[in-house]
Simulated assay, not measured.
Amino acid sequence: MSPLIDRLNERLDQGFDDALLRFALGKALFDAKDVERAASHLREAVLKAPDFSAAWAQLGRCELALGHEAAALDAWEKGCVAARLRGEIQAERQMSVWLKRARKGT
């Protein structure tokens, strides 16, 4: 494990369990190629904060990497809605591009 992942896990073990911590841990695990564990933390992040568009975006990337295309599309669709409601235009555009590419199979 990386020092960052160790520190984030330590915070989680201390009871600091919120969407931002889960997102950070999920992103760090994804970057470390531990996609299954990353997806688990990102699922928790979006449960805790359904309007967290960055967490939806990263969850979609994890699901796609795991071969769960339908789950990836679902995550990005929900992420687009969250981004739109929060006025996060760039996040919505990025996930829209990922959706189009995944639907085309490229």
Rank of each mutant, 00 (worst) to 15 (best):
A39H: 04
R101P: 03
R61S: 10
T106Q: 10
A72W: 09
R22P: 06
V81C: 06
L99E: 02
A75G: 09
S53A: 14
D6M: 08
E88L: 10
E77I: 05
L59N: 01
A55M: 11
L8T: 02
R61L: 15
D31S: 13
S2F: 03
L25N: 14
A54H: 12
L12V: 02
L42R: 13
A75R: 01
A102T: 15
S53F: 12
A24R: 13
L4Y: 02
R22S: 12
W56I: 11
S2P: 04
A57I: 05
Q14H: 07
E10L: 09
G15S: 03
A28E: 00
R93H: 10
A82E: 07
E63K: 03
A57T: 09
T106P: 05
G67A: 13
W98P: 04
E44Y: 10
K33F: 08
K33S: 09
E88P: 09
C80G: 06
A24D: 15
D34G: 05
D18P: 02
A49L: 09
R11N: 00
K100G: 07
F16L: 12
A49V: 06
H68C: 07
V97W: 03
R86A: 14
D6L: 12
I5D: 06
A71V: 02
S2A: 03
K33W: 02
V81F: 12
N9W: 04
K78C: 14
P50F: 02
R37V: 05
R61N: 10
C80H: 11
K27Y: 08
R11S: 00
D34K: 14
L12E: 01
F23H: 15
R103G: 04
R22N: 11
L42T: 11
L64A: 14
F23E: 03
K48M: 13
G87Q: 02
A57V: 04
A75C: 10
L42G: 10
A28S: 05
L21C: 08
F16Y: 14
I5Y: 07
R93K: 12
A32S: 13
A57E: 13
V97M: 07
E36C: 06
S2R: 10
M95D: 01
E88M: 04
L25Q: 13
E63V: 07
D6E: 15
A72H: 08
V46A: 06
R11D: 01
E36P: 00
A49H: 10
L21G: 04
A54R: 14
D13A: 15
G87R: 03
K48I: 10
E88I: 00
G67W: 12
D18E: 12
V35Q: 03
F23V: 01
T106C: 09
G87K: 02
L4N: 05
C62F: 06
E69M: 09
K104Q: 15
E10W: 07
G87V: 03
N9Y: 02
L59F: 01
E36Q: 10
C62Q: 10
L47A: 07
G79I: 04
G79C: 00
L4S: 04
R86C: 06
L66K: 08
L21K: 01
G26D: 00
W98S: 14
A28P: 07
E88C: 04
G87H: 04
A19D: 15
Q90T: 09
W56G: 08
A65D: 12
Q14E: 08
R11W: 00
A71L: 03
A91N: 14
S2M: 04
E36T: 13
